[in-house]
Design a protein around this nucleic acid. Structure first.
Lengths: 116, 116
DNA sequence: ATAATATATCAGTGAGTAATGATATGGATC
DNA sequence: GATCCATATCATTACTCACTGATATATTAT
């Protein structure tokens, strides 16, 4: 069975699509990857280096992000260079940080459960 | 052990905080609730009616959203009225819809796995 | 061709999480 | 104070997901 699955199925309603998109962002590994790609396009091994994630792990997350259209890829010699597919992604991440400024205490403070 | 847990623990880095916030949004039930509250404050039983979710389910999600500071509540007689805590939440949801316009095909199309 | 590097895929595992049904609490009215 | 309605909590169950380690594919260079 497949692995990294935080995007993608055939949910139809607008709300389900939104939930799927949010889930694409709702993982520290994927956020780290997107963060890195917001600065500049990178090849997989470069992402591995700067995120300190394992190579298969990065590859799996990239596949998910690629399928969902959040990143795009171009072959460059024997490298494959990934980049964010739209500047709106960077904008969205900024908006989230703005919202975080407003609710950060709550997010930080509450511990309904033990964590990620 | 606690139940609805998509927010909240003591992750410290900026990325972990962002992931937590995104996870708060990454669920169709919570999105439906937030969507309803974007229009007007509502009591729990009203949310139950318009989202068609079960009452305990709504209550659990509201607790999570409340702890994370995404919604706020006011007692009103024997009702408890919930509202979104910041207009930025509505703005964020709009931004996501804009991004969805750009990547919707990808989100819809790919089916790495089954179900929501 | 062979070796070396870059990337992708596979199988298995363990943990986290959402939903349900039953039950408890708390405020208001009679 | 007993009853009714609104809301919250509990325990259980089933499902989804992320990570690891091993392996496969692809491209370049020798």
């Amino acid at each position: 069975m497949d692995q990294i699955v935080a995007c993608c199925n055939s949910g139809t309603t607008a709300i389900e699509r939104r939930a799927k998109l949010f889930r694409g962002f709702a993982d520290p590994s994927r956020l780290a990857i997107l963060d890195a790609l917001c600065d500049a396009p990178l090849a997989v091994h470069e992402i591995v280096t700067c995120t300190k994630l394992s190579q298969p792990n990065v590859s799996n997350h990239l596949r998910c992000l690629l399928d969902c259209g959040l990143v795009a890829s171009d072959r460059d010699g024997r490298f494959i260079r990934y980049r964010i597919s739209s500047p709106r992604i960077k904008a969205l991440l900024n908006d989230v940080d703005t919202l975080l400024d407003a609710v950060a205490e709550g997010i930080e403070a509450c511990d309904n459960y033990r964590g990620t």
